[in-house]
Write a protein that binds this DNA or RNA. Structure first.
Lengths: 213, 213
DNA sequence: GCAAAAGTGTTACTAGTACACCCATGC
DNA sequence: GCATGGGTGTACTAGTAACACTTTTGC
């Protein structure tokens, strides 16, 4: 019977870079190396519940985080065949900043372009999951899950610009959302930044799903 | 520790309908009900290998079949938490017809609109996997995996028309493939049908991937 | 020669791209 | 009042959608 481990692989955009949340491994083998937060699946819970538990321990709060799944077959030790199930999430940097740091792990956000020495084949899994996320985020309905409300359009634009490493015209970016009738204004504004405050939006209840990119 | 089972869920288009390959359960519980071909994951193989083995036993030969994965957490028996990993495939009806029937299972293709009484929650999984497949098949690169070469455009058109239940203009359908430089003619023709034989095509080596629908 | 299915081109419309100036806020 | 970032409209281009007739084969 295979051993199944649940990985919770969270990405964000910060300081113009795509970053991933990792924790430092405290036990041998690979002590001191970094890894994707994980736990073994138990028979007492569904895998969704197990993933939620890992997420909770990370104390990345107020997330509105959605999970997706990818699976990879490790053959880390011959004869002991471990299967890992990744939950892939994305969290807005604004919400990252306010998350407290009471977690029992030594955790840190790393740029995906400058990953530290990682345990097992976790580096490979991180890059794989990032591609998976990039693909998913092309759909408006998936973006909706990660950003249900109170987001600004410049904020979303930065997400896409860094994720796909492209430059987008601000006016055309807005038009995509407004012409397709995806979003509506809230009465709120984002006052936290320099310059003119950005309007905050929310996704409409019903819209025809499109590929944004 | 969770028990993991590998499901091989193959779809086709036949007689203007989307069909799924099922086998009849020979043992209790649910004896006589239909189910998705499956086996338990073993520690000796990767899950890919296990899925390939199930596929082989189905004797759906010469497939050019590609696999994708979805996962679902069953709670079939309280305390015994079974996880199932689906490999989702699509096979062209032309190739279905020529597959021999030496398999040890009682197997049959069912229209997804008229599914038989199914074991466990397999009906739910089938419909779920179908949605997954429909989403995947919107990408040219995925279609490419299922139809690498020697396909006709009317054949592909029928796949999309039945899968998404839409009508497509033949000229516009062709243009999409030809304008985007996705395919090239082979010297072959499909002579098996009534009417004018259709030209057979193959995907090019390199093309820019697009969403076809 | 006729029934069945495949191949082909042009026009109208719709969606996407390129582009520059003004506006609201903090200091 | 100036630096910073956000909001807005128009002209052009490219892609998509609508549409009918001719060609090849089997019987």
């Amino acid at each position: 019977m295979k051993q199944l481990e649940i990985l919770v692989n969270i990405f964000t955009i910060d300081e113009e870079e795509v970053k991933v949340l990792l924790i430092k491994k405290q036990t041998d083998p690979h002590r001191g190396y970094w890894m994707i937060p994980k736990t073994n699946a138990s028979n007492e819970q569904t895998v969704d519940e197990t993933a939620a538990e890992v997420l909770e321990k990370l104390t990345v709060k107020d997330t509105k985080l959605y999970q997706y799944q990818t699976i990879s077959d490790l053959e880390r030790v011959p004869g002991l065949n471990i299967l890992s199930l990744s939950y892939v999430g994305f969290i807005d940097v604004v919400r990252v900043k306010i998350s407290d740091d009471e977690s029992p792990f030594e955790k840190e956000w790393f740029s995906v372009n400058k990953l530290p020495k990682m345990a097992y084949n976790h580096q490979h899994i991180v890059l794989n999951n990032l591609e998976f996320l990039k693909e998913k985020l092309k759909k408006a309905s998936v973006l909706n899950l990660f950003f249900p409300s109170d987001f600004s359009l410049p904020e979303l634009q930065r997400v896409y610009e860094r994720l796909y490493n492209i430059e987008i015209d601000r006016r055309n970016f807005r038009k995509k959302f407004i012409n397709h009738d995806l979003i509506e204004e809230t009465s709120l504004k984002n006052e936290d930044t320099r310059g003119r405050p950005s309007k905050l939006y929310m996704f409409k209840e019903n819209y025809e799903d499109i590929y944004l990119f």
